[in-house]
């Protein structure tokens, strides 16, 4: 059974007539990295909040790790689902880095000796141990998001949701966070659901789900999704630069591989193409 199972989910915000999510069905398997892309207002973040009960679905069924999302289960589900939010400052609760990492553990009444080791381990995993006693005001955006991730992995959830977690970061901070997620996945085989409009982030996922006006339009591997360049552009989404280059080269008559290539992959392809000519 899928780790996250969403069946026919509908949701509308109370002050809006148009539903934010319409008949969304999505399965995420354990260990998978799924990226949900879509333009602003497509319902991406609403979907994330429906998974851990921050918002209550109007109809449909959400099941996380076998637990149906109900009033009684909501805290148990939140224990399994960690969310990294968009704004690095507005989710930093603790007065120092280690206090913030401990916050979730304090909420779950983890005994202090265990809390100390878990905070230490989590900070080591995100490479922020040297900053343990620093105040948030003295950290960069990327570092704050790493702390937020540490706060979540300290709770040992089964799923980590990145709700546009890199959108407010500079390119260096974005790369920092993405590399970290890739490392963590290599180590722990964690399930990641990233909600993003950053194509590079989506390109590192196993599967990309395209959301438009609250409906799932398409779902597939990054390669499958990004080869439909024009459709993505029509939906107001960016297409990764290598894909745009490939499309242009194809129009110019060059044969291009069908699967998705990142910048480095494309460079490799291009220079080997040249040397075989």
């Amino acid at each position: 059974m899928a780790l996250i199972d969403i069946e026919h989910l509908n949701f509308a915000y109370p002050d809006q007539t148009k539903p934010a999510l319409r008949d969304v069905s999505l399965q995420v398997n354990a260990g998978e990295w799924v990226a949900i892309i879509g333009h602003n207002g497509s319902g991406k973040s609403t979907l994330a909040k429906n998974i851990n009960g921050l918002l209550a679905p109007a109809s449909g069924q959400v099941t996380v790790a076998g637990l149906p999302l109900t009033e009684a289960n909501v805290w148990a589900i939140r224990e399994k689902v960690g969310i990294v939010f968009q704004n690095p400052d507005n989710q930093f609760v603790g007065a120092t880095v280690q206090d913030d990492v401990a916050f979730g553990l304090e909420n779950r009444a983890v005994p202090r000796p265990e809390m100390v080791t878990r905070v230490h381990d989590a900070l080591a995993q995100v490479n922020m141990l040297d900053f343990a006693t620093r105040e948030p005001a003295r950290l960069s955006g990327g570092q704050k998001q790493r702390v937020a991730i540490a706060g979540i992995i300290a709770q040992r959830p089964e799923i980590i949701i990145l709700d546009e977690a890199t959108s407010m970061l500079d390119p260096a901070g974005r790369a920092e966070v993405l590399t970290l997620i890739q490392q963590l996945r290599a180590q722990t085989n964690m399930t990641v659901l990233s909600i993003t409009h950053d194509v590079d982030e989506a390109a590192s996922a196993d599967r990309v789900v395209l959301l438009n006006d609250g409906e799932i339009v398409e779902s597939g591997t990054p390669a499958e999704i990004f080869t439909h360049g024009e459709e993505l552009l029509a939906l107001g989404l960016d297409v990764p630069y290598p894909e745009r280059l490939k499309a242009a080269l194809r129009r110019a008559g060059a044969t291009m591989p069908k699967d998705y290539l990142d910048e480095e992959g494309l460079v490799n392809y291009l220079w080997t193409l040249h040397s075989t000519m």
Binding site: K49, W75, G82, I83, N90, F103, G104, N107
Partner: peptide, 11 residues
């Protein structure tokens, strides 16, 4: 935002 984050972290 902070309240949402605290909620999500089980406060």
């Amino acid at each position: 935002d902070l309240a949402t984050a605290m909620d999500a972290r089980g406060y």
